[in-house]
């Protein structure tokens, strides 16, 4: 983990209520796709944990959904503004696992970390495909970006306004070697039930600190209690214990 200042390069909408922010700063602490940053907002007590969409030396991209007053305020941040970030948080996905033809299953703002993952899977010579789910066409983003990488992407929308009508689980192919997924918990549960292979699931929780100190985001697993922010947010399918 590293605490450092980043400067906003770009901050623009990519779909309805979904914004992309590119930030310049020290990205050395980021070691895996699926890790997150924790953004300090002036006048708000808790930082905002947001997954990293992509990064390279000196620059990272986050994609955030406007959910409350804090994220609404972020949409007004101009290029050049400085933000205090904790970077390199969480375990992230391990792209080395799971064979040559993994499927990436993303829902809503669960899609962004899969983009950084797709890049790294391709760099390992794997052939990932993506299934991306959204509520409606106006909320769809990044399908083109996945395809531009060379990762085929199938879309599903709940209202059928674009792609397959239904959920990501209605658009899964038959043959894949492994899965990586990130999205709302109801989607993760559906993916968990529908998939036949092993895989890695990235969870979201309300967090206090984001770096393992407060125990606010703990969950139960077959190997004991884990902190979503520290031992997570990515859990292996085999270790998951659902709450209900």
């Amino acid at each position: 983990m590293l605490q450092s200042l980043f400067e906003i390069r770009e901050n623009e909408p990519v779909a309805r209520d979904v914004w992309r922010m590119t930030l310049a700063g020290d990205t050395a602490a980021i070691t895996a796709p699926g890790q997150f940053v924790n953004v300090r907002l002036e006048g708000r007590f808790l930082r905002r944990p947001i997954s990293v969409c992509d990064w390279r030396e000196g620059e990272l991209t986050i994609i955030y959904k406007v959910l409350g007053a804090g994220t609404a305020e972020m949409t007004g941040f101009p290029a050049g503004k400085t933000l205090d970030l904790l970077t390199g948080l969480g375990n992230g996905f391990d792209p080395s696992e799971g064979g040559d033809a993994p499927i990436l299953i993303g829902g809503g703002v669960g899609v962004p970390p899969l983009y950084g993952l797709a890049k790294r899977l391709l760099a390992l010579g794997k052939k990932p495909r993506a299934v991306l789910g959204f509520n409606t066409a106006a909320e769809v983003f990044y399908a083109g970006e996945f395809r531009a990488l060379g990762c085929p992407a199938v879309l599903a929308t709940a209202d059928g306004s674009l792609g397959v009508r239904g959920f990501v689980t209605d658009a899964l192919p038959e043959d894949y070697s492994y899965f990586f997924t990130c999205g709302p918990e109801a989607m993760l549960k559906a993916v968990y039930r529908k998939t036949k292979t092993s895989g890695q699931l990235s969870f979201e929780r309300r967090m206090g600190c984001g770096f393992g100190a407060c125990m606010g985001c703990s969950c139960k697993t077959v190997t004991g209690f884990k902190r979503i922010c520290r031992e997570g947010p990515v859990l292996r399918k085999e270790e998951i214990v659902w709450d209900d």
Partner: peptide, 20 residues
């Protein structure tokens, strides 16, 4: 002890709530 079910963190003006 595992503690209480999640969510167990909330924000407040100039502070936070926890029910860890």
């Amino acid at each position: 002890r595992f503690g209480n079910p999640t969510p167990r963190i909330a924000e407040a003006p100039a502070g936070m709530l926890n029910s860890v």
